[in-house]
Each structure stands twice: as structure tokens, then as C-alpha cells.
């Protein structure tokens, strides 16, 4: 992608500010009246669509839904001032989330770089989604709908129960976060142990175990990339929505939610050095299998 043509939906002063930074990042800016949405909204030569969350986030999500329906092939950048709650996106997700409050020039340059060259191969992203989805489904009977997006912002906690498990290897680094409310984690608990009710600490523990199983599957996947994963200490965070739990700013996020209940998963990869590795099927034990040793 040599020329990047950015279609910008922004309102008021934000439009000129964002357009200025996009131009400085080497993009060609095209604008549309954001209040007149129709089927010809997105020109054919558009490389990327930028939507400013602004002061009316619900209205902006309407724009996101429309452009994603019209042109699902074009990446969408969601611009926020500082922090984002990914739970606010339901069926339609942006491909990038950018917070430009602290260093807008760098933020938009990073987006341009990502658009020109994806540093994490799509095959790897798909494999991650598959192992996370299958691992959690098999263990807990809940099915996450997963998507991948690049994040350059902090996140806020959306639910009262949160577990965060950091990990690192010679090829990847990041964390997994499981977040849910009483009803969601209670329903998973009761599915596993019918007739019992969890206390708050049980719900925290369950969220930790979901993270543990998901990381176990990621660990298994990475064996195929000749890499061994080490885990950090799990963190249990309270449900104050003002708490920011991802402070490192740039990375790939595999984000998922379980339809119908308030349970979310966020796998955050600050970096992943897997581009030139041909994955193999390593010698390892498979989940559920019995191995006499």
C-alpha cells in the first residue's frame, strides 16, 4: 500500500486536528459530511476509514456499523482521546483503536506503518483465535466470539471481576485479561458445578482459571513456533471502571465476548516475533489426553 487514502469522519475542531496529523503521517485525507450517511459514503479508492469517537460515541458507533456493513474489507480506525472500553463494541469492531492525547504524531505514524506492513502474520492471528476459542469452549462450555485489532490506547475495566495474567517468551510478550460480572461468572460456575453458588473470590478464581486454560493453549501453540512461554503472577483487579489496566500503548489485541453474558477476554500482544517462522506440530501432549509417564 503506497498511497494511503484516509476517509475521515470527525466533527468540529477534531476534523482539522486529525486531518492535519494524518497528512503529516503521509496519508491523503478525504472527508465526508458525517451527518449525511448514504450508500455512496465510501469511495472505492479508500484505504482506511477514521472515525472520531467525539462527544457522541453512540452516534459514532452508528457510523462504524454502516461503514463496516458497506465495506468490511477496509480497515477502520477508531479515534479516542485517551482510554477505550472494548466492551462498548458489539458486533462491529474497529481494526485499530488510537488514542492521540499524549503523542498524536507518533500514534498516527504507527497506524500508517501498520497499514503498510502487518508485523504479525494473519495466519498467526487466526491460529491464536482458534486455540483460545477451542480451549475455553472445551474447558468451560462458553464460546467467545473473537476479533483482532491493533490498539494504541489504554483500556478501562468494564466489569467487577477481572483477572490479568502477564506472559513473556523469546517471541511474544503481553497479557491475557478475563473480565466478567456476577451473573456471567455465576452462570459458568453453575454449568461446571451444578447446584453450587460461587462467592466473589470463587468468581475471581474462575476468571483466573479461564485465563490459565487460555494461556495453556497459547503456550501449546507457541511450541510450534519453537518458543516456550513463561507466566507472571496473576493480578486480580477490582471493578472500578476508572482503573486503567493496559498502559503499554501499542499492540495487537485479540478481543472476545460471549454473546448474551457480560464476559470478555482480551489477549494483548505487545510484540510477537513470528513473521519468519514456519510453524510445526511439536511433540506435546494434547488436552484431555491421558499420558502415562
Amino acid at each position: 500500500m503506497s498511497e494511503i487514502r484516509a476517509l475521515v469522519f470527525a466533527w468540529g475542531e477534531s476534523l482539522s486536528v486529525i486531518s492535519d496529523y494524518l497528512t503529516k503521517a503521509g496519508m491523503t485525507v478525504v472527508t465526508r459530511d458525517p451527518d449525511r450517511l448514504d450508500v455512496d459514503l465510501v469511495p472505492d479508492d479508500t484505504s482506511v476509514i477514521v472515525i472520531d469517537e467525539g462527544a457522541e460515541p453512540d452516534k459514532r458507533r452508528g457510523v462504524l456499523r454502516l461503514v463496516k456493513r458497506l465495506r468490511p474489507d477496509i480497515p477502520v480506525v477508531w479515534h479516542v482521546l485517551q482510554a477505550v472500553s472494548l466492551t462498548s463494541f458489539s458486533k462491529y469492531h474497529p481494526d485499530f483503536v488510537v488514542a492521540s492525547m499524549l503523542d498524536p504524531g507518533r500514534a498516527w505514524s504507527d497506524v500508517a506503518d501498520r497499514l503498510r506492513e502487518s508485523p504479525i502474520p494473519d495466519e498467526f492471528k487466526e491460529r491464536i483465535k482458534q486455540v483460545l476459542r477451542d480451549g475455553v469452549q472445551n474447558a468451560f462450555g462458553v464460546s467467545f466470539e473473537l476479533t483482532t485489532l491493533y490498539i494504541q490506547s489504554t483500556s478501562t475495566i468494564a466489569h467487577p471481576v477481572n483477572t490479568l495474567l502477564p506472559f513473556v517468551s523469546d517471541r511474544v510478550g503481553g497479557h491475557i485479561a478475563i473480565s466478567g460480572d456476577d451473573a456471567a461468572l455465576g452462570s459458568v460456575w453453575e454449568r461446571l458445578m451444578p447446584g453450587t453458588r460461587p462467592k466473589f473470590v470463587d468468581e475471581q478464581d474462575l476468571a483466573g482459571e479461564i485465563a490459565n486454560v487460555a494461556i495453556g493453549r497459547l503456550k501449546e501453540l507457541l511450541l510450534g513456533y519453537q518458543s516456550s512461554l513463561s507466566l507472571g503472577m496473576p493480578l486480580y483487579l477490582g471493578g472500578d471502571p476508572r482503573v486503567l489496566y493496559r498502559t503499554s500503548k501499542s499492540g495487537l489485541v485479540v478481543w472476545g465476548h460471549v454473546p448474551g453474558i457480560n464476559l470478555t477476554l482480551e489477549l494483548y500482544l505487545k510484540w510477537a516475533d513470528v513473521a519468519n517462522i514456519v510453524p510445526t506440530d511439536p511433540l506435546h501432549a494434547h488436552e484431555g489426553e491421558f499420558n502415562w509417564v
Binding site: E287, N291, V293
Partner: peptide, 10 residues
């Protein structure tokens, strides 16, 4: 160890 089972168990 006698045996090794990868979670989740069946």
C-alpha cells in the same frame, strides 16, 4: 509422576 493430563480434563 504416574500420569500426565492436560487441562481441561475429559
Amino acid at each position: 509422576a504416574t500420569a500426565w493430563i492436560v487441562k481441561p480434563f475429559r
